[in-house]
Protein backbone atom coordinates (compact mmCIF):
# COMPACT_ATOMS: atom_id res chain seq x y z
CA UNK A 1 0.00 0.00 0.00
CA UNK A 2 1.23 3.43 -0.80
CA UNK A 3 2.42 5.38 2.19
CA UNK A 4 2.64 8.92 3.30
CA UNK A 5 5.98 10.56 4.01
CA UNK A 6 6.40 13.35 6.54
CA UNK A 7 9.65 15.25 6.65
CA UNK A 8 10.43 17.61 9.51
CA UNK A 9 13.45 19.89 9.88
CA UNK A 10 15.73 17.84 7.67
CA UNK A 11 19.30 18.86 6.87
CA UNK A 12 21.87 16.78 4.99
CA UNK A 13 25.64 17.08 5.01
CA UNK A 14 28.59 15.94 2.92
CA UNK A 15 31.33 15.97 5.52
CA UNK A 16 31.30 19.49 6.93
CA UNK A 17 29.33 20.92 4.00
CA UNK A 18 25.61 21.40 4.52
CA UNK A 19 23.89 20.52 1.25
CA UNK A 20 20.26 21.09 2.27
CA UNK A 21 18.82 22.89 5.22
CA UNK A 22 15.74 22.58 7.35
CA UNK A 23 13.33 20.99 4.93
CA UNK A 24 9.84 20.03 6.01
CA UNK A 25 7.10 18.66 3.80
CA UNK A 26 4.42 16.07 3.51
CA UNK A 27 4.26 13.71 0.57
CA UNK A 28 0.81 12.25 0.07
CA UNK A 29 0.22 8.60 -0.79
CA UNK A 30 -0.89 7.65 -4.30
CA UNK A 31 0.29 10.92 -5.73
CA UNK A 32 3.19 11.98 -7.85
CA UNK A 33 5.29 14.67 -6.25
CA UNK A 34 7.82 16.46 -8.45
CA UNK A 35 10.94 18.23 -7.19
CA UNK A 36 12.13 21.07 -9.38
CA UNK A 37 14.83 23.67 -9.00
CA UNK A 38 18.18 24.78 -10.39
CA UNK A 39 21.21 22.50 -10.45
CA UNK A 40 22.92 22.09 -7.10
CA UNK A 41 19.85 23.05 -5.08
CA UNK A 42 19.80 19.71 -3.29
CA UNK A 43 16.79 18.03 -4.93
CA UNK A 44 18.64 14.79 -5.50
CA UNK A 45 20.31 14.94 -2.11
CA UNK A 46 16.93 15.39 -0.46
CA UNK A 47 15.49 12.54 -2.51
CA UNK A 48 18.29 10.29 -1.36
CA UNK A 49 17.58 11.04 2.28
CA UNK A 50 14.09 9.58 1.84
CA UNK A 51 15.42 6.03 1.51
CA UNK A 52 18.67 6.52 3.41
CA UNK A 53 20.78 6.29 0.27
CA UNK A 54 22.44 9.57 1.21
CA UNK A 55 24.50 7.92 3.91
CA UNK A 56 26.01 5.44 1.42
CA UNK A 57 28.42 8.23 0.45
CA UNK A 58 31.36 8.30 2.86
CA UNK A 59 31.12 11.21 5.30
CA UNK A 60 27.50 11.99 4.49
CA UNK A 61 24.97 12.38 7.31
CA UNK A 62 21.46 13.57 7.95
CA UNK A 63 19.74 15.53 10.70
CA UNK A 64 16.01 15.76 11.19
CA UNK A 65 13.10 13.43 10.85
CA UNK A 66 11.55 11.44 8.04
CA UNK A 67 8.50 9.34 8.90
CA UNK A 68 6.87 6.75 6.70
CA UNK A 69 3.33 6.28 8.02
CA UNK A 70 4.44 7.13 11.57
CA UNK A 71 7.68 5.10 11.50
CA UNK A 72 10.75 7.32 11.84
CA UNK A 73 13.20 6.19 9.14
CA UNK A 74 16.11 7.63 11.10
CA UNK A 75 14.91 6.28 14.43
CA UNK A 76 17.23 4.14 16.49
CA UNK A 77 17.19 0.51 15.50
CA UNK A 78 15.84 1.22 12.05
CA UNK A 79 17.71 -0.75 9.46
CA UNK A 80 18.57 1.25 6.32
CA UNK A 81 18.40 -1.95 4.29
CA UNK A 82 14.80 -2.51 5.40
CA UNK A 83 13.99 1.12 4.64
CA UNK A 84 15.14 0.65 1.06
CA UNK A 85 12.91 -2.39 0.68
CA UNK A 86 9.99 -0.08 1.36
CA UNK A 87 11.26 2.95 -0.51
CA UNK A 88 12.59 1.96 -3.92
CA UNK A 89 14.68 4.09 -6.23
CA UNK A 90 15.24 4.60 -9.95
CA UNK A 91 18.39 6.41 -11.00
CA UNK A 92 19.28 9.02 -13.57
CA UNK A 93 21.16 6.62 -15.79
CA UNK A 94 19.74 3.15 -16.33
CA UNK A 95 21.94 0.78 -14.36
CA UNK A 96 20.95 -2.83 -14.97
CA UNK A 97 23.33 -5.35 -13.45
CA UNK A 98 25.67 -6.26 -16.31
CA UNK A 99 26.29 -9.83 -15.22
CA UNK A 100 22.59 -10.64 -15.08
CA UNK A 101 19.93 -11.44 -17.64
CA UNK A 102 16.69 -9.46 -17.93
CA UNK A 103 14.94 -12.02 -15.78
CA UNK A 104 17.69 -12.04 -13.17
CA UNK A 105 17.74 -8.25 -13.05
CA UNK A 106 14.07 -8.08 -12.18
CA UNK A 107 14.35 -10.95 -9.72
CA UNK A 108 17.57 -9.59 -8.17
CA UNK A 109 15.99 -7.72 -5.25
CA UNK A 110 13.89 -10.70 -4.23
CA UNK A 111 16.52 -13.34 -4.82
CA UNK A 112 19.12 -11.44 -2.87
CA UNK A 113 16.77 -11.17 0.05
CA UNK A 114 16.00 -14.84 0.10
CA UNK A 115 13.02 -15.53 -2.18
CA UNK A 116 14.07 -18.62 -4.06
CA UNK A 117 10.89 -20.31 -5.26
CA UNK A 118 10.99 -20.50 -9.01
CA UNK A 119 7.24 -20.30 -9.61
CA UNK A 120 6.81 -17.33 -7.33
CA UNK A 121 9.73 -15.53 -8.96
CA UNK A 122 8.38 -16.22 -12.44
CA UNK A 123 5.07 -14.64 -11.48
CA UNK A 124 6.65 -11.60 -9.91
CA UNK A 125 9.03 -11.05 -12.81
CA UNK A 126 6.18 -11.20 -15.28
CA UNK A 127 3.95 -8.90 -13.26
CA UNK A 128 6.76 -6.42 -12.67
CA UNK A 129 7.73 -6.31 -16.33
CA UNK A 130 4.06 -5.87 -17.24
CA UNK A 131 3.82 -3.17 -14.61
CA UNK A 132 6.76 -1.43 -16.25
CA UNK A 133 5.23 -1.79 -19.74
CA UNK A 134 8.19 -3.86 -20.84
CA UNK A 135 6.80 -7.37 -20.87
CA UNK A 136 5.72 -7.45 -24.50
CA UNK A 137 9.11 -6.30 -25.69
CA UNK A 138 11.20 -8.78 -23.71
CA UNK A 139 9.02 -11.82 -22.99
CA UNK A 140 10.88 -13.84 -25.62
CA UNK A 141 14.36 -12.90 -24.46
CA UNK A 142 14.25 -12.98 -20.71
CA UNK A 143 17.54 -14.86 -20.59
CA UNK A 144 19.40 -12.23 -22.60
CA UNK A 145 21.59 -9.70 -20.77
CA UNK A 146 19.79 -6.58 -19.60
CA UNK A 147 22.58 -4.43 -20.97
CA UNK A 148 21.50 -5.39 -24.50
CA UNK A 149 18.28 -3.35 -24.29
CA UNK A 150 17.89 0.22 -25.51
CA UNK A 151 18.28 3.05 -23.02
CA UNK A 152 14.55 3.52 -22.55
CA UNK A 153 14.02 -0.21 -22.19
CA UNK A 154 16.85 -0.40 -19.69
CA UNK A 155 15.23 2.34 -17.63
CA UNK A 156 11.91 0.52 -17.66
CA UNK A 157 13.81 -2.63 -16.69
CA UNK A 158 15.21 -0.70 -13.73
CA UNK A 159 11.69 0.39 -12.82
CA UNK A 160 10.52 -3.21 -13.06
CA UNK A 161 13.42 -4.20 -10.85
CA UNK A 162 12.44 -1.54 -8.33
CA UNK A 163 8.73 -2.47 -8.19
CA UNK A 164 9.49 -6.21 -8.03
CA UNK A 165 10.30 -5.89 -4.35
CA UNK A 166 6.88 -4.17 -3.92
CA UNK A 167 8.00 -0.99 -2.22
CA UNK A 168 5.55 1.53 -0.78
CA UNK A 169 7.28 4.52 -2.28
CA UNK A 170 9.16 4.92 -5.56
CA UNK A 171 11.82 7.59 -5.81
CA UNK A 172 12.94 8.64 -9.28
CA UNK A 173 16.06 10.75 -9.75
CA UNK A 174 15.72 12.41 -13.16
CA UNK A 175 14.66 9.08 -14.68
CA UNK A 176 14.25 10.48 -18.18
CA UNK A 177 17.22 12.79 -18.47
CA UNK A 178 19.23 10.19 -20.39
CA UNK A 179 16.33 9.15 -22.63
CA UNK A 180 14.82 10.22 -25.95
CA UNK A 181 11.34 11.83 -26.11
CA UNK A 182 9.58 8.59 -27.05
CA UNK A 183 11.16 6.65 -24.23
CA UNK A 184 10.41 9.62 -21.99
CA UNK A 185 6.76 9.46 -22.94
CA UNK A 186 6.73 5.75 -22.18
CA UNK A 187 8.20 6.38 -18.74
CA UNK A 188 5.80 9.25 -18.07
CA UNK A 189 2.80 7.08 -19.00
CA UNK A 190 4.17 4.44 -16.72
CA UNK A 191 4.45 6.92 -13.86
CA UNK A 192 0.81 7.88 -14.29
CA UNK A 193 -0.20 4.22 -14.08
CA UNK A 194 2.04 3.45 -11.14
CA UNK A 195 0.62 6.21 -9.01
CA UNK A 196 -2.52 4.22 -8.34
CA UNK A 197 -0.35 1.82 -6.38
CA UNK A 198 2.61 3.81 -5.18
CA UNK A 199 3.68 7.05 -3.67
CA UNK A 200 5.98 8.49 -6.31
CA UNK A 201 8.57 11.21 -5.94
CA UNK A 202 10.35 12.41 -9.05
CA UNK A 203 13.25 14.81 -9.45
CA UNK A 204 13.23 16.52 -12.81
CA UNK A 205 14.92 19.37 -14.60
CA UNK A 206 12.14 19.44 -17.10
CA UNK A 207 9.31 21.70 -15.95
CA UNK A 208 6.96 20.46 -18.65
CA UNK A 209 7.53 17.00 -17.33
CA UNK A 210 6.75 18.11 -13.81
CA UNK A 211 3.58 19.77 -15.07
CA UNK A 212 2.60 16.67 -17.03
CA UNK A 213 3.12 13.91 -14.52
CA UNK A 214 2.90 15.37 -11.04
CA UNK A 215 0.05 16.16 -8.71
CA UNK A 216 2.14 18.24 -6.40
CA UNK A 217 5.34 20.14 -7.07
CA UNK A 218 8.07 21.26 -4.70
CA UNK A 219 10.44 24.04 -5.69
CA UNK A 220 13.96 24.06 -4.23
CA UNK A 221 16.49 26.86 -4.50
CA UNK A 222 19.84 28.07 -3.25
CA UNK A 223 20.60 31.63 -2.37
CA UNK A 224 24.13 31.37 -3.78
CA UNK A 225 27.02 29.06 -4.52
CA UNK A 226 28.11 27.14 -1.45
CA UNK A 227 24.94 27.83 0.49
CA UNK A 228 22.64 24.96 1.40
CA UNK A 229 19.56 24.27 -0.66
CA UNK A 230 16.12 25.07 0.76
CA UNK A 231 12.57 24.20 0.03
CA UNK A 232 10.88 27.35 -1.22
CA UNK A 233 7.37 26.02 -1.51
CA UNK A 234 5.31 22.92 -2.19
CA UNK A 235 1.77 22.98 -3.52
CA UNK A 236 -0.61 21.56 -6.07
CA UNK A 237 1.20 21.44 -9.39
CA UNK A 238 -1.47 23.51 -11.11
CA UNK A 239 -1.08 26.19 -8.46
CA UNK A 240 2.73 26.19 -8.60
CA UNK A 241 2.72 26.71 -12.32
CA UNK A 242 -0.22 29.08 -12.53
CA UNK A 243 -0.07 31.11 -9.40
CA UNK A 244 2.88 30.41 -7.11
CA UNK A 245 3.02 32.02 -3.71
CA UNK A 246 6.72 32.83 -3.81
CA UNK A 247 8.34 35.24 -6.21
CA UNK A 248 11.42 32.97 -6.59
CA UNK A 249 9.22 30.15 -7.83
CA UNK A 250 7.56 32.36 -10.36
CA UNK A 251 10.92 33.66 -11.56
CA UNK A 252 12.23 30.15 -12.01
CA UNK A 253 9.16 28.86 -13.78
CA UNK A 254 8.91 31.78 -16.13
CA UNK A 255 12.61 31.51 -16.94
CA UNK A 256 13.61 34.69 -15.15
CA UNK A 257 15.77 32.73 -12.79
CA UNK A 258 19.15 34.12 -11.84
Amino acid sequence: MAKRIDVAGLSAYYGPTRAIEDISMTIEPRTVTAFIGPSGCGKSTFLRTLNRMHEVIPGARVEGKVTLDDVDLYGSGVDPVAVRRHVGMVFQRPNPFPTMSIYENVAAGLRLSGVKKRGELDDIVEQSLKGANLWKEVENRLKKPGAGLSGGQQQRLCIARAIAVSPDVLLMDEPCSALDPISTTAIEDLISQLKSEYTIVIVTHNMQQAARVSDRTAFFNISGTGTPGRLIEIDETSRIFANPTEKATEDYITGRFG
Binding site: N51, M53, V56, V81, A82, V83, R84, R85, H86, G88, M89, F91, R93, N95, P96, F97, P98, A108, G109, L112, S113, C158, R161, A162, V165, P167
Partner: peptide, 14 residues
Protein backbone atom coordinates in the same frame (compact mmCIF):
# COMPACT_ATOMS: atom_id res chain seq x y z
CA UNK B 1 30.69 1.31 -11.14
CA UNK B 2 29.17 2.69 -7.96
CA UNK B 3 25.83 2.96 -9.73
CA UNK B 4 25.52 -0.82 -9.52
CA UNK B 5 26.16 -0.79 -5.79
CA UNK B 6 23.58 1.97 -5.38
CA UNK B 7 21.05 0.12 -7.52
CA UNK B 8 21.46 -2.88 -5.27
CA UNK B 9 21.24 -0.89 -2.03
CA UNK B 10 18.12 0.81 -3.36
CA UNK B 11 16.51 -2.60 -3.72
CA UNK B 12 17.05 -3.18 -0.03
CA UNK B 13 19.86 -5.63 -0.55
CA UNK B 14 22.33 -5.74 2.37
Amino acid sequence: PDSLREASYALGVP
